[in-house]
């Protein structure tokens, strides 16, 4: 368990540094008081508001308060809407996480069979076709996949109405139908990348001595592959899947914009243009925690699978 604690320590330290940098950077952006009161507010009002918001305190103290607040889910109040940030984020986070997880599941669902198939039939006609198609699909950005899906399924086939998001509470079925297309958008390019990576990882592993030995001992290619190569071939793929999770979250920001999904990405963009710093800070921090956590889990899985890495 030692390595878990060590990695966890690094994780927390990185998060601490990142959060301070982010906090300090956003605090430098500008005084929210002018934004909230307008430019012709009286100095007394300004001072009162500054005190109310705690802006008269030194940066380090404010950061400390913000951080401890964050830990107990108190993320302060929105400058613009004057309501707790947590209330603004709550449902929206759920939508974005659902979207990411759906995208991730779709990626796994398609990329693993495709990668394994390509490796099994290396050099075959089907494998070559897959390689070419993969290479092209990888060049199609998620946002363009989104646009194509929206045009085809939304405008031409009218399977869903672009722009009119249905919440889970209103109709779970409609909600899932609406979410499947954005999830596909973020999944498609990543599926191609993962399949390609898995294929070359398996082929690399098959070249190694231990698989060859198993092969020559009379195991046929399929058992050699399943028994030995697949597990080791998965190691680099798991790290890649972790960065996939992270990238997908970033990708969601664009995708939510295209499909008008009221997720955390849209909220981030709106809050940025409103200069609603507490909301932006909270979202950035949540994203950072997510990214770091995903990499952390990836590393743990890798180390459980391959104890050699525990150095």
């Amino acid at each position: 368990m030692n390595f878990v604690i060590k990695k966890l320590g690094t994780l927390l330290l990185t998060l601490l540094v990142l959060s301070f940098l982010a906090y300090a950077a956003f605090e430098m952006v500008g005084d929210p008081v002018n934004l909230m009161l307008g430019t012709n507010a009286s100095p007394e009002d300004v001072a009162a508001l500054r005190q109310q918001l705690g802006l008269d305190k030194p940066l380090l103290l404010r950061y400390f308060r913000w951080l401890t607040g964050f830990l107990v889910m108190d993320m302060g109040n929105s400058y613009i809407y004057r309501i707790p940030v947590i209330d603004m984020i709550g449902d929206k986070l759920g939508i974005t996480v659902t979207l990411t997880l759906m995208g991730f599941a779709l990626t796994l669902l398609f990329s693993i069979p495709l990668g394994v198939y390509g490796a099994r039939r290396e050099g075959s006609w089907a494998d070559r076709m897959l390689t070419v198609v993969n290479q092209i699909v990888m060049a199609v950005p998620a946002f363009f996949v989104a646009i194509l899906l929206m045009v085809f399924f939304g405008v031409v086939l009218r399977l869903f109405t672009p722009g009119s998001f249905v919440s889970f509470q209103d109709s779970p079925g409609q909600y899932l139908l609406y979410m499947i297309f954005p999830a596909l958008s973020i999944a498609v390019p990543r599926t191609a990348m993962t399949a390609k990576m898995l294929r070359s990882s398996i082929l690399g592993e098959m070249q190694k001595d231990y698989v060859r030995t198993a092969y020559s001992r009379g195991h046929n290619r399929q058992t050699a592959l399943k028994g030995h190569a697949l597990k080791n071939a998965l190691l680099p793929v798991i790290s890649f899947m972790a960065s996939t999770m992270a990238e997908m979250l970033a990708g969601c920001i664009v995708i939510e914009q295209i499909f008008s999904i009221p997720g955390i990405g849209r909220l981030l963009m709106v809050s940025i243009s409103n200069r609603d710093i507490p909301v932006v800070e909270a979202i950035v921090m949540i994203l950072a925690v997510w990214v770091m956590l995903v990499h952390f889990i990836g590393e743990i899985i890798n180390e459980v699978l391959d104890p050699r890495l525990r150095a």
């Binding site: 290479q135 060049a139 199609v140 950005p141 946002f143 363009f144 646009i147 929206m150 045009v151 405008v155």
Partner: peptide, 26 residues
């Protein structure tokens, strides 16, 4: 334009991006 049934704009711009990226990635 898409929602008004005019997808060409988006598709051509998107295709241009795809071709640029495809060239570099290949």
């Amino acid at each position: 334009y898409i929602l008004r049934g005019l997808p060409w704009y988006a598709i051509f711009v998107g295709l241009t991006i795809v071709l640029l990226i495809l060239g570099f990635s290949l």
